[in-house]
Design a protein around this nucleic acid. Structure first.
Lengths: 159, 159
DNA sequence: GCAGGTTGGTGTAGCTTCTTCACGATGAGT
DNA sequence: ACTCATCGTGAAGAAGCTACACCAACCTGC
């Protein structure tokens, strides 16, 4: 493997290290609010799209409807959300943030912005711009790779 | 929030998107080899440090010894590792890669290098260098933040 | 040489996330 | 009114993780 290739591998390794650190940091912060990653993800989505039936949440979060039932059960028991009646469909229940839930999500949002400031605030603007440009490149490449892989998987085992 | 601050938040969001994509991609690839993320992490560590007692693996992976027992059980049942007798300590068992396990880990290593090439190979060198420079900055910042947080937590609840 | 504390691994019990399958209740189209 | 699709949930189970209890084997110090 050439020196250039090794530098690519090292860069990927550092990205993976970053993902681990971010995940750990997030999980620890959420635990302080009595939340887990999955539950917080649901709350976050709720902040984004407003009260929603569980089916919608399952699609948005890309998990099974049954899983959403469990997450909402837990969030309801701990006072983050309530299940309201959907006036338009008696089968469905509108998952809704409580006041407490909304305030916690708002705090999470502030903490995210703080983290962004802590990470990038001290970086010279030109370096920041170069970094985000490279980041966009990587994201685009990754998106196309994932799409190609999905196509290949479909071709091998068409659903 | 100023425009600059918003750009920081957007950058962080894109990093988080990257972590999600990488994690999904990795999990899907591993599933094809009959592995999960946790089990693959153990195999990877084994490749790095060679045959090791479970206690050592628990420390290296930062999980409970009990958890390692379960992971090794599964990896042993699926033929990736064996538990060898430690000649120096009859309590301990040396977790050792089988031939199959070693070849799979080797393939994982190659796939990682391929991914790195796919992600960075088409990037102009100056952009790549600028990206990794920014990445290093972010990693350093994050490391110090995590360290500070750990210190604060220790101060609040000294173990 | 052996009592006493330490360490390595695992049984038990439990939580969380996630899945699939089955089923009841409701909604919607013919 | 009948049929079929849809919403949510019970049941069962895989996988990762934890803490606690316990045994066997190791290591000290007398």
């Amino acid at each position: 493997m050439s020196a250039v290739e090794e530098s690519w591998t090292r860069a990927l390794e550092r990205i993976l290290e970053l993902t681990v650190l971010l995940h750990q940091d997030a999980a620890r912060g959420l635990a302080r609010d009595g939340l887990t990653t999955s539950r917080a993800t649901l709350l976050w989505k709720l902040r984004e799209i407003g009260p929603a039936p569980q089916r919608r949440l399952a699609e948005e979060l890309d998990v099974s409807p049954r899983n959403v039932t469990g997450l909402v059960d837990a969030l309801e028991a701990t006072g983050f959300v309530t299940r309201e009646h959907d006036p338009a469909d008696r089968r469905a229940s509108l998952v809704t943030l409580t006041e407490h839930g909304a305030s916690v999500v708002e705090r999470l949002r502030r903490q995210r912005d703080e983290l962004a400031r802590d990470l990038f605030g001290a970086m010279p603007e030109t370096r920041f711009d170069a970094f985000t440009a490279g980041l966009d490149d990587v994201l685009r490449r990754l998106h196309t790779l994932v799409a190609e892989e999905a196509r290949a998987a479909d071709g091998a085992a068409p659903s």
